[in-house]
Amino acid sequence: MGHLDDKELLERFRNPETRSYAFNLIVRKYQERLYWHIRKIVISHDDSDDVIQNTFLKVWTGLESFREDSQLFTWLYRIATNEALTFLKKKRRKFALPLVEVEQQLARTFEASPHVDGDEIQIKLQKAILTLPEKQRLVFNMKYFEELKYEEISEILGTSVGALKASFHHAVKKIEKYMDLD
């Protein structure tokens, strides 16, 4: 039962008797991918933990109505992305911070958090990514780190493939400049 594909997991989820178990398997299958996706957006581990819990809570309540028009993992990514962005928006509103200040605050997390462990270049790269506009940041993370196809990113973000390619191109140029790679 541990190696079921998404279709079989969904079938079991729709059966009230195996619903909880199937959900547990879905969480186990996707938790790491979603966690790291969220972590790259909100940076802090504690915030990522809150966001991933909210994400799976939404999945639990919404999975029954999932129509399989898209792949399960792109649907999960979409929920995780929305939850992470909503979290940042709330944070911005709560502390009445402008957008740039939030990104600077996220960058400061690299110095303060006990859950940051990497070399100087890795941290500098993350700081460079935080200077990007929100959409470019998402596209860059999904393309560069998670190696998703443009078609998949398009399904997650609801943006055309052409626009995504342009966003990624601009993001790469800005990061190269920040990292002094020109």
Binding site: N24, W36, K40, H45, Q53, L57, V116, D117, Q122
Partner: peptide, 24 residues
């Protein structure tokens, strides 16, 4: 950029992914 690698400078508390499904 490829020269920089794709490692993330983040870590999680030990056993985090083992207990997350139960918490969820």
């Amino acid at each position: 950029l490829e020269l920089l690698g794709k490692e993330l400078p983040f870590k999680v508390p030990e056993g985090y992914f083992d207990e997350l499904p139960t918490r969820i």
